[in-house]
């Protein structure tokens, strides 16, 4: 089970009214390499991973939901006061027609989230390598969003989220090291 703490993992501040950035941020909300995909992937894979690294998937999967919540906050702040015309201008016209101002799990191009985006192979190495790749893909998505965003306050929070991808990738790499270790063998240095 989970305990909910009613605050964001890192404060989300947005300095400019620019709904177009909200459209870009949707990639991390409902995209193939987004936070939702990450959370579902790890929390699902954790059952069939060696118990030495099960807790890692549990913890990182949980944290991904905290990231999802930050992205949701950004998108909401950027769209809540926009007029339908401004949303249209920002390329969010089709979104508005289908979903109003509510958030929806879709990517920056408006394609709905599907679990076919994620895999669970039941092979620990295959799964952990997918997880490392997922973190690197999310890291680069953050970089590309930072490159197209000129909102310094938003970019500050995006920089935080990108750094978390770096740390998660590091931990998954260590998880591979842990489970490939020759157990019970004498190590000779």
């Amino acid at each position: 089970m989970w305990y909910y703490e009613k605050k964001l993992q890192y404060p989300v501040r947005v300095s400019a009214c620019n709904p177009r950035i909200a459209k870009y941020l949707m990639e991390q909300y409902g995209g193939a390499d987004g936070e939702l995909a990450a959370a579902l992937r790890y929390l699902n894979q954790r059952y069939t991973i060696p118990d030495r690294v099960m807790g890692l998937l549990n913890d990182i999967g949980t944290e991904e939901f905290a990231h999802l919540e930050m992205i949701a906050t950004m998108v909401y702040k950027l769209t809540k006061d926009a007029t339908p015309d401004q949303l249209k201008e920002a390329g969010l016209g089709p979104h508005y027609v289908n979903h109003g101002k509510s958030l929806y799990f879709e990517n920056a191009a408006g394609e709905s989230f599907t679990v076919a985006h994620i895999q669970s192979k039941g092979d620990p190495i295959a799964d952990l390598y997918e997880d490392i790749a997922a973190e690197e893909k999310a890291r680069s998505t953050y970089q590309w969003i930072i490159n197209v965003s000129d909102d310094p306050m938003l970019n500050d929070a995006l920089g935080f989220l990108r750094e978390r991808e770096v740390v998660h990738s590091q931990r998954f790499r260590e998880a591979v090291d842990l489970i490939k270790e020759e157990q019970g063998k004498k190590k000779v240095f």
């Binding site: 890192y10 920089g159 935080f160 989220l161 990108r162 750094e163 978390r164 770096v166 740390v167």
Partner: peptide, 9 residues
């Protein structure tokens, strides 16, 4: 504020 406990990361 850095997103990690480790300067090395």
């Amino acid at each position: 504020s850095h997103g990690t406990l480790w300067p090395g990361l």
